[in-house]
Amino acid sequence: MRLSQTLGKSLWTFLFNSGSCNGCEIEMVAAVTPRYDVERFGLKLVGSPRHADLLLITGPVTRKMAPRLKLVYEQMPDPKIVVCVGVCGISGGTFYDSYNLAGPVDQIIPVDVYVPGCPPRPEAIIHGVVTALAKLEQAEKVS
């Protein structure tokens, strides 16, 4: 599916908590507060994956959440972007040796950009989203 010109200016975002400690959520919500105000760029939080263009995932993906994460990813309409926020989703982070992990996020669904940090700052999350967009645009050009 082709990327449209408008996608980057109107990213509707779905937050998915796959078992995080909520630290990353606090930072993501900070990004919509007046200090950072990502709505300036047309980014908006939505309640349903069907409305979303961007999936922001936090947490290391517990066994219970793994099938749900996959389901939510599949429910999103194309074209879609996935950004993994926090070191948990990259490697398991603090929970790396937990008996309850189904693995980091990229074991379950494809990830476009990883944002490291525990938790990452809001600036880092915004940068991650911008990077994901740039990456998709480049992929579009090459293909």
């Binding site: 408008t6 996608l7 200016k9 105000d37 047309g42 069907r50």
Partner: peptide, 22 residues
């Protein structure tokens, strides 16, 4: 906050029109 540009809803609609319709 500063808020989105005034034409944001038009951009949103244009984007939704290009998305997959499930």
């Amino acid at each position: 906050r500063i808020g989105p540009p005034l034409r944001q809803p038009f951009i949103d609609m244009a984007k939704l029109m290009t998305k997959q319709n499930i």
